[in-house]
Design a protein around this nucleic acid. Structure first.
Lengths: 275, 275
DNA sequence: AGATGTGAAAAAGTTCACAGCG
DNA sequence: CGCTGTGAACTTTTTCACATCT
């Protein structure tokens, strides 16, 4: 098959910048909270603080939606809630299916934030026959065999994949073939999909690794955090000196010599020498 | 105080760009897979495909780490695995605590990808006394009262918050006070932390909303939807549509000239008007 | 006065395209 | 040759600062 493009939809942003779209839900959440407290209006400054961004950015973001504020006053909370909801397409109901009802899938099914916005869990699907019929979060799990029918019957266009990595691509292909055009992927795999299908991924492990990167940099600062960093482990004087965590089935060592390294951005130099 | 959160915790001097750091885990995953298949070397093209990015970007990313490839050949898999692991700080062990052992917290505790890299679940913490001692994923849940002691005893610097939104900030404050300097937040709330503390958030609801935005655009786009799908992917279900407007989504027909466009986007005019 | 909305500048990130090394 | 490494061009995003409107 055509190894799909993993490209992002090339943002034909004649409209709202992608970065702005990604923040709208944040604003919406802050606004909803204000709305519940019956706050009538907010300034960009206040709202920005509540959403955790700076006010110039917020104003710029809103400017892409239109002029919804009142100079000298601020923004009308209810009105903005409506406008942003509409812009995000939340004024309509989005039926969603969750495929892979393991620990994570079940947790997602139980997640309240799901329904609180325009999303409705239309069905839960799992490949394990033993789960079929068993209710999770009040919804009976259905078998993968019926995936296509479920998608069609419910007019689902958004699918959530919470299967093991190995099954993700296959499930993805079936979802797409059945008409799903947006996928939220929790499996630690890169999914390839045809153009026109959006994929967003959530990967716990990746997030932690990013944090670790920054955490590592902190070691060596006046700010404590002196966890046995024990300095960089003896620099790998050889290419395949991999002694890291896991290194399964790796004869390694005898590998080639990726020799000559040039200038690295700066110090730290891991004494890598060509043979 | 209102310490604006993540300003740019990134390396103060010129270091690795944040965008690159965010992709390193992706490359690492692809490389690890290759390593397990005992593939000795990869070209930027192949690796890029496996990681779902384009090759120029990958090469540029690697260039920030140093010159680890061999012209005319490619990259030595094992060597690169080691280098990236080291760069990400994964050659050391990171004890992590998960606070809030509900559906999600439990799922996270059971998540395998956790341990597969340098992360180790050092403790599970929950505010419910009834959960104390109960084992989840083989680890006994401890009570929130002991949070500080747990953090210190285990030298934890990374915390995962999976509590309800209402408890998140408080838990965050305690974690930070106890010495945690990196937080992965699953609660749908903006956390405020002092400088020097990194926060990353994972919000299911936000991801879905972003998908909904794009999904909405698709309904009504003459875009090449010819991804060989039988049956019309049916327009996004029954438009439960809120009160307002009978006005169909903006007809993206006219290519709108990007110019002095004031006012709101065409065709909206909601029934809801600010007072 | 007090806040929005927005050009313009700056910064960050991506892509191009090719020199140059193996 | 083939493929990396990278300056340069280009695009997107953020920030500044102030004209503009209520």
């Amino acid at each position: 098959m055509a190894t799909g493009r993993t490209h992002r939809p090339a943002t034909r942003s004649r409209g709202i910048p992608e970065a702005t779209v990604a923040r709208l839900p944040l604003y919406l959440r802050a606004l909803t909270a204000l709305s519940e407290r019956s706050v009538p209006t907010v300034s960009s400054e206040e709202l920005a603080a509540a959403a955790g961004v700076n006010s110039a950015k917020l104003r710029k973001d809103f400017s892409y939606l239109g002029s919804y504020g009142t100079r000298g006053v601020g923004y009308d909370v209810e009105y903005l809630v409506y406008q942003i909801s509409r812009e995000l397409g939340l004024t309509q109901d989005w039926p969603v299916v969750i495929v892979g009802i393991g620990n994570l899938g079940a947790a997602l099914a139980n997640y309240g934030g799901f329904a609180s916005r325009g999303f409705r869990v239309a069905a839960l699907i799992d490949a394990d026959p033993a789960m079929a019929g068993k209710p999770v979060a009040g919804i009976p799990v259905q078998h993968t065999d019926d995936l296509e029918k479920i998608i069609e019957d419910n007019g689902v266009s958004i699918g959530v994949i919470a299967t093991p990595a190995g099954a993700a691509q296959q499930v993805c292909d079936r979802l797409v073939a059945a008409g799903v055009t947006s996928i939220l992927n929790f499996a630690p795999t890169v999914l390839s999909v045809p153009d026109g299908v959006d994929v967003r991924k959530v990967d716990l492990s990746i997030e932690l690794q990013i944090l670790a990167f920054h955490e590592q940099r902190k070691a060596g600062e006046p700010t404590a955090a002196a966890h046995g960093v024990a300095g960089a482990p003896a620099a790998p004087t050889a290419p395949a000196a991999a002694a890291a965590a896991s290194a399964p089935a790796a004869p390694a060592a005898a590998a080639a010599t990726p020799g000559s390294r040039k200038g690295r951005p700066e110090g730290d130099v891991p004494a890598v020498m060509p043979a």
